[in-house]
């Protein structure tokens, strides 16, 4: 099938690639742009491992076509840290041992960041419902929820 030229912004950088119209944004990020931070756990929008934001909106990149990225602004886990400085969520995930295998972590970090952008002070239950689309099979979520709440508290204090 004819490939379509797509120009988009990923983590602040302007990039372009050729996409088959059947390819997902996840495929394009991973296979065309070498950004393998977003993972495919299901390909059907059920696990959240592929979470990214498109124009600020949290999406499953396995449910977005690569060609839909044209002219959009995309943020992935690779863009969370500023150089060597980790995002508070990233730091708290390590500190709280909120990852075991770590395959769900990129998606959960992106999703949690999107939550805190719209609600800097979520209750535990809000975090649990917001992250209900991000499966983690290893942790039982306990330490993930604690890490998100702790990062939110730290970010509110502006540390």
């Amino acid at each position: 099938m004819t490939q379509i030229h797509v120009t988009t912004t990923v983590n602040g950088d302007e990039v372009d690639f050729l996409a088959d119209p059947r390819e997902t944004l996840l495929d394009c990020l991973r296979d065309k742009l070498g950004m393998t931070g977003a993972k495919e756990g299901c390909g059907t929008g059920d696990c959240g491992a592929c979470s990214v934001t498109v124009d600020g909106r949290l999406v499953c990149s396995c449910l977005v076509l690569g060609v839909e990225a044209q002219g959009k602004t995309i943020e992935t886990v690779e863009g969370m840290a500023e150089g060597e400085k980790l995002h508070p969520l990233q730091r708290k995930f390590i500190e709280h041992a909120a990852l075991q295998c770590g395959i769900c972590t990129p998606g959960i970090l992106v999703a949690a960041k999107a939550l805190l952008a719209q609600n800097p002070d979520p209750a535990e239950e809000e975090v649990r419902y917001w992250l209900a689309g991000n499966l983690c099979r290893c942790t039982g979520y306990d330490k993930i929820i604690r890490a998100v709440l702790d990062a939110a508290a730290e970010m509110r204090e502006g540390v």
Partner: peptide
């Protein structure tokens, strides 16, 4: 902190795919 922590929260860690 686990030694592979930074790789795993920044998306650098390389998994099977």
């Amino acid at each position: 902190d686990r030694p592979d922590g930074i790789d795993k929260v920044t998306g650098k860690a390389r998994y099977g795919a």
